[in-house]
Nucleic acid binder design. Structure first.
Lengths: 163, 163
DNA sequence: GCAAGAATGTTATCTTATATCAAACTATAC
DNA sequence: GTATAGTTTGATATAAGATAACATTCTTGC
């Protein structure tokens, strides 16, 4: 595997999103089983809603979606599912947007780097080892012990730069 | 200048914070003059409050501080000052904390990279050109045009790792 | 001084997230 | 199979973060 690859996003025209979601679901089940955690119907629903596109989704939008199939869900319902999914590495929170998105490669421990299109909202998740190790190097220089990385780049995707 | 330097933070024991703030204020005045903007008393006060430490400050904490010297300030008072200061490049918002911090090098256009100590709350601002250009390289590969970077690393500073 | 624009004040409201306690469900031990 | 401990979800309330909209005051250039 190359040290830098686009794991997800910016390919909406080409890929079969049904397969994409099905894969994500299978992978999520596997991860939960491995961790001895339960992928309950509620968690599954929230996960599916997040994967309905490669765009980040806001918690209260999830809540509104949930309301279509559940009886008057309350915020904690969504936040608890999101917390669980984040804990399991199945979902990322985009801090710069206060929004959530399905993780493109949940199997491996990582935090990911995100390129967020300001125009169409689509997000690509990258995982560049070189970038991570450069950060580790910087941290080491000042004696800092890294626990968590938030790397979110916003701008315009290729499509949205067309005139 | 090295391609990677700590601009601010994690040096609390050694530096004269009075000088530090005085420098920041002078620099802020210069930047505003250069931009033809007004560094009003309110903006100055908010700026000073932000520079009272190298820790990020929350908007509502600023508001509470302001309330000590101003008559019942409301949220927009603080948010407007923060918006202005961010616009001028004098202040950064830390998205992962919903908090704000004075910029260590306001003269130059940059977005900065932050190392945030989870224990003591102190933040170091770095500016690593290599890191930035690595991100640009990644972006170019997928045809992405970068507008803005959010890079926030949390963990433990050297001090807080001591047993 | 006066008009135009900038900055601040004021009130209300919106968005995002969590605390707390109760009820329902699940798995295991007996 | 049922008691029980632990986990998950339901429900209510509220905390925390941010902005909209309009009024007033302050600055600046004429």
């Amino acid at each position: 595997m190359p040290d830098n690859m686009v794991i997800q996003g910016f390919e909406s025209a080409e890929h079969d999103h049904g397969d994409c979601v099905a894969d994500a679901l299978r992978e999520a089940e596997r991860v939960c089983t491995e961790r001895g955690e339960r992928f309950t119907p509620l968690r599954r629903t929230v996960f599916e809603l997040l994967w309905s596109s490669h765009k980040p989704v806001k918690a209260y939008d999830l809540l509104a979606q949930l309301a279509l199939t559940h009886d008057r869900p309350a915020p904690p319902t969504v936040y608890r599912a999101l917390d669980f999914l984040q804990e399991a590495g199945l979902v990322h929170k985009l801090e710069s947007l206060n929004a959530y998105i399905g993780c493109g490669e949940p199997g491996r421990r990582h935090q990911g780097q995100f390129m967020i299109c300001e125009e169409c909202g689509v997000v690509a998740e990258l995982d560049d080892e070189t970038l991570t190790s450069r950060i580790d190097t910087n941290a080491r220089k000042i004696g800092f012990k890294v626990n968590d990385e938030t790397i979110e780049i916003s701008g315009l995707c290729r499509q949205c730069q067309q005139p």
